[in-house]
Every structure is written in C-alpha cells, then in structure tokens.
Simulated scan of single mutants.
Amino acid sequence: MNEIAEIADTDAKAVAQMKVRDLIERVAGSVEQNKKDVRTIVEATLVELGKAMEAGESLNLPPFGRVRIANQKADATGQLLTLKLRRGGEKKPGKNAGKEALAGAGEAS
C-alpha cells in the first residue's frame, strides 16, 4: 500500500501535502539539475503565479490545468481566494479529425 493510501486509512481528515521543498526536490530530480538552480526558478515561478492570481488572472497551464478564481475576499489575515481547477483528460477529436489533408506537407505552394 502506498503512503497516501495509508494516510487516508489512518485518518480520513489527513491530506497529503506538497511543500515548496518537495516541489524543488521533484523538479530537480526530473530535470537532473542541482537543487540550488531549481530553487531559484521554482520560487520565482511561484511568486509570478501568486501575482497573477492577486491580479485576478486565470491560469491556463497544461498539463496542470486551468485555474480560475471562483470567489475572493479580504480579511485581517490577508486575501482569501477560492479557486477552481479544471484538469483536462484526453483531447477530444476536432470536427476535422479523420479527414485527409488537401495537400501534403511538401506540396503546399
């Protein structure tokens, strides 16, 4: 049984949580770069994402998904944003799927 399933079994309210250091470690491992260089890029990316959300922008970041602000309010502790994330599945074929092209790649003039 994996770690997430074990957490869910022991405490229904416990949720697995990724922190910045975990993200940096995973990214560094997947691109085979040192953590110091990756840390700079990840932290700058998170700052820019935060700025975009504060400005009311929605995000379209495949393969992560589309994120939009569903509700927002400010209180004494800061700004509270309720976000909606839409993750895409397989792309649906377009209306021209399966149709043959009129000209080959080398035939276009």
Rank of each mutant, 00 (worst) to 15 (best):
N2Y: 02
I4V: 15
I7E: 08
I7D: 00
A8W: 00
T10E: 14
T10L: 14
T10F: 11
A12C: 13
A14K: 12
A14D: 08
A14G: 08
V15D: 09
A16V: 10
K19V: 03
K19W: 00
K19Q: 05
L23V: 10
G29R: 08
T40P: 00
T45Y: 08
L46E: 02
V47L: 15
L49S: 02
A52M: 06
M53F: 08
M53C: 02
G56E: 04
N60F: 07
P62Y: 07
P63G: 01
F64L: 13
R66E: 10
R68W: 05
R68Q: 11
I69H: 01
I69R: 04
I69N: 01
I69S: 03
A70M: 09
A70N: 12
N71P: 05
G78T: 02
G78Y: 01
L81D: 04
L83V: 05
K84Q: 13
K84E: 15
L85V: 09
L85Q: 03
R87M: 10
G88L: 10
G89M: 05
K91L: 09
K92I: 13
K92D: 12
K92F: 10
K95I: 14
K95N: 11
K95Q: 14
A97N: 12
G98C: 04
A101C: 14
A105E: 11
G106H: 12
S109F: 12
